[in-house]
């Protein structure tokens, strides 16, 4: 019997090893270990054995069973591994082939600049104010200390619709409207982005339509030094921590004193083609709100003071990204626009 078992074990192990696939292997298991298999048959025949022999034989049967089971399991593992290897080999791909494109659009560079500036000033406690692009002469000029006949409001520079209606030439009318809404009570702290229009012929540096973003702060004790500090913070966040600003006296009818604000050039003052060798780039116009403007908007200029500033998104985008022609912003060439869909 012992002989028989040894023979079965040897035979079963050989058959398991020879199995070509999992099915054949299963057949081997059923054939040798199944209910009708020879090992079970041996077990059934154990009743005929003596009480001494029975446990001995039982142990031997278990050893044989285990040996066959082990051989089958090992073969099964190797067959499964082969199968998965085969599947993997079949399923292998060239990972360097291009992925299925997810269509991605992007911001227009002017929106990018606008949102960047908006977010920067929102962080400093400003609200964003907007207003109509077709304006009344009053809000665009008169309320800004530019009465009719003022030399600085040349008809030639403005798209008029009727003598009292025009395409706004700056976003300052939004400041006027916002101040009027505040009805003489501060504080006011806004930035006004938007499209503006001038009677210019379009060329590399001029556009009849462009964008402006203006800021206005009116309060009980607003100082020129606050303007300087605010714009210094702006320049550092917008252009880099190492940048500085410089104020040069200038003239705008709606501010007094008025200044032009230069930001130090990225060349670090060495002088380059962007700053034309001066080390400074003109970026903003600014000043203290003219008392006439405050009064016309219902603020007591003895109590309130304020500062205002303005800049052009086109110019800032041109400086920031090195764009050489303002017309690119309005041609909507995808080869241009797509360059601005990357997040910095």
């Amino acid at each position: 019997m012992e002989e028989q078992l040894k023979g079965l074990q040897e035979e079963a192990i050989l058959k398991a090893a020879a199995a070509q696939d999992l099915k054949e292997l299963n057949d081997v298991r059923v054939a040798y270990l199944g209910k009708k298999g020879p090992v079970t048959e041996v077990l059934k025949g154990m009743g005929k054995l003596s009480a001494e022999e029975r446990p001995k034989m039982g142990a031997l049967v278990n050893v044989v069973r285990e040996a066959i089971t082990k051989a089958i399991e090992s073969k099964q593992a190797s067959l499964e591994s082969e199968a998965i290897q085969k599947q993997l080999a079949e399923e292998s791909i060239d990972v360097t082939l291009p992925g299925r494109p997810v269509k991605l659009g992007g911001h227009h560079p002017l929106t990018r600049v606008t949102e960047e500036i908006e977010d920067l000033f929102i962080g400093m406690g400003y609200k964003v104010a907007e207003g109509p692009e077709v304006e009344q002469d009053y809000y665009n000029f008169e309320a800004l200390n530019l009465p009719k006949g003022h030399p600085a409001r040349d008809m030639q520079d403005t798209f008029y619709i009727t003598p009292e209606l025009l395409m706004r030439t700056h976003t300052s009318p939004v400041q006027v409207r916002t101040m009027l809404e505040h009805a003489g009570k501060g504080p006011v702290k806004i930035i006004c982005p938007g499209k503006v229009y001038r009677r210019d012929s379009d060329d590399a540096t001029h556009s009849h339509q462009f964008n402006q973003i203006e800021g206005l702060v009116v309060g009980e004790n607003i100082r020129m030094s606050d303007l300087k500090g605010t714009l210094d913070a702006f320049a550092k966040k917008m252009f880099g921590e190492d940048r500085e600003i410089r104020l040069r006296p200038s003239f705008f009818p709606f501010t007094e004193p008025s200044v032009e604000v230069d930001v130090s050039c990225m060349c670090g003052g060495k002088g380059c083609s962007i700053c034309k060798g001066t080390g400074w780039i003109e970026v903003l116009g600014a000043g203290m709100v003219h008392p006439n403007v405050l009064e016309m908007a219902g603020f007591d200029s003895n109590v309130y003071s304020g500062f205002a500033f303005g800049m052009g998104q086109e110019r800032i985008a041109m400086l920031k990204y090195g764009i050489d022609d303002i017309r690119h912003f309005y041609t909507n060439d995808l080869r241009f626009l797509k360059q601005f869909s990357v997040h910095e």
């Binding site: 269509k103 659009g105 912003f329 869909s341």
Partner: peptide
């Protein structure tokens, strides 16, 4: 819209 594949354009009002 940009996530859906559209690129923003800015055109003239006039």
């Amino acid at each position: 819209l940009e996530g859906a594949g559209f690129t923003q354009a800015v055109t003239y009002s006039l």
